[in-house]
């Protein structure tokens, strides 16, 4: 594992983080021994109640899915190998160069033999205590025989998510007080303020979407949507399902019943080329008032500072079309 030197005892780092990070629902992430002394350590998961993961020593050889790496990269935590979805998606990975990192799986597959050869101390990715979210039970059983699995924290709000992921990073050896991190926190606070001002000055409705040929998926209730609502924006769309998959589903023929002035598309970029006749007819699409958002990807202050700044700019330049 290529990572930051462990100059600070991890327990002090984690303690300092908890003091500055505010509250997080669920348990707190702590290391139960001093990793600098090379002893056993235990991660108490920050969002999964009752989940504790013990290591004989500070985990050093790490395998990550690309969602985990997109977050942990900012803290200087580097993987020995990658797997998972969206590794080539610039909206998820930003400008991270993964060309020099071994890939042991693509999308929902992993080469368990290569994983075993690496003998990682931990595998980190989206999932729960049983393993990675997209693997079958038997694959997760094989995976957890090779290494302990650290699920990325899942939180109800963006702020809680940033805090919880920072705790995982700190457990793995990051310095949460590093200059780039504190600067990102300041920028995030400023971006929140800028967005609130823009939302107050422009009475525009926003819809979070992920369009497919078959259906328009909507993101009411996602942490990103909740964040914009907290900052004063009006988010439109069908309510999130009470159980199960939290994407809202709207038949194309009903898409116009949720009038929006700005439509945020998951993974949107200048090269975005989705087209469907009833999508193209939506006023925000016709007016080219589209922006991006991501339900996955880096859960860091830097990511959300940049996103909110871009949205504040878009709020200021968009018009009421619904």
């Amino acid at each position: 594992m290529k990572r930051l030197p462990l100059a600070l005892p991890l327990t002090l780092a984690a303690g300092a983080l908890l003091l500055c990070a505010g509250t997080t629902e669920g348990a707190d992430s702590t290391a139960s021994a001093d990793p600098a002394k090379g002893g056993a350590v235990t991660l108490t998961h920050p969002t999964l109640e009752g989940v504790e993961i013990s290591f004989e020593q500070q985990p050093e050889t790490l395998v990550m899915d690309c969602y985990a790496y997109s977050t942990l990269h900012e803290y200087g935590i580097e993987p020995d190998a990658l797997f998972g979805f969206d590794c080539e998606n610039p909206f998820v990975m930003g400008d991270i160069d993964i060309s020099g990192i071994e890939r042991i799986g693509v999308d929902g597959e992993i080469d368990v033999e290569k994983l075993a050869e690496l003998r990682p101390d931990a595998v980190i990715g989206q999932g729960d205590a049983d393993g990675w979210a997209w693997f079958d039970e038997d694959v997760n059983t094989q995976l957890t025989r090779v290494a302990d699995f650290i699920p990325l924290p899942s939180a109800e709000t963006v702020d809680e998510g940033i805090t919880a992921n920072r705790e995982i990073a700190a457990f793995l050896g990051a310095d949460p007080e590093a200059e780039n991190i504190t600067q990102a926190d300041e920028d995030y606070a400023d971006a929140k303020e800028a967005f609130s001002v823009a939302a107050g000055e422009n009475d525009l409705d926003v819809m979070f979407t992920s369009p497919t040929k078959e259906m328009l998926y909507t993101g009411v209730g996602f942490p990103q949507a909740n964040l914009l609502e907290e900052l004063g924006a009006t988010v439109v769309g069908p309510p999130a399902p009470e159980t199960g998959n939290r994407w809202g589903q709207v038949a194309w023929e009903e898409a116009s019943t949720f009038p929006a002035d700005i439509i945020l598309v998951e993974g949107y970029s200048d090269e975005y080329d989705f087209s469907a006749e009833l999508w193209d007819s939506l006023p925000a699409v016709a007016a080219d008032q589209l922006g991006n958002w991501g339900s996955k990807g880096a859960m860091t202050s830097r990511t959300y500072a940049d996103w909110l700044d871009a949205l504040a700019e878009q709020m200021s330049t968009s018009e009421k079309v619904s």
Partner: peptide, 16 residues
């Protein structure tokens, strides 16, 4: 009527 949602449904979904 291109601006009427029901007309959009008829011509952009049902007719095709």
């Amino acid at each position: 009527d291109p601006d009427e949602p029901v007309s959009q449904v008829v011509w952009q979904s049902r007719v095709p």
